[in-house]
Amino acid sequence: MLDLDETRHLAELSKISLTEAELQTLADEMEQIIRLMDTVAEFQSGEDAFAVDPTAYEALRADQVAASMPREDVLSNAQVRTDACFQVPKVV
């Protein structure tokens, strides 16, 4: 079962900041949810088990240069921008 440290690690992997109280609530909820997910442990996979890939491509389109979306359209939903760039906090 998940303890608080593991839940904190998962929140970190998920890039979601949570308070200690929220982490405790999430840990409690995840314990119940993972108990339900543990149903899969009863599955006897056997030698014939296989994984399917339903997203296998039907056909790829030709690898040709084509017009992309106009830059202004791409930038139109950014909350913060500088000139023709997305703006992010300083990283170095």
């Binding site: 998940l2 839940t7 998962l10 929140a11 998920s14 979601i16 999430l26 995840m30 949810i33 993972i34």
Partner: peptide, 11 residues
């Protein structure tokens, strides 16, 4: 949504 993301990363 947060629960699903955390569950997915757990799996």
């Amino acid at each position: 949504v947060k629960r699903r993301i955390v569950l997915g990363n757990y799996a």
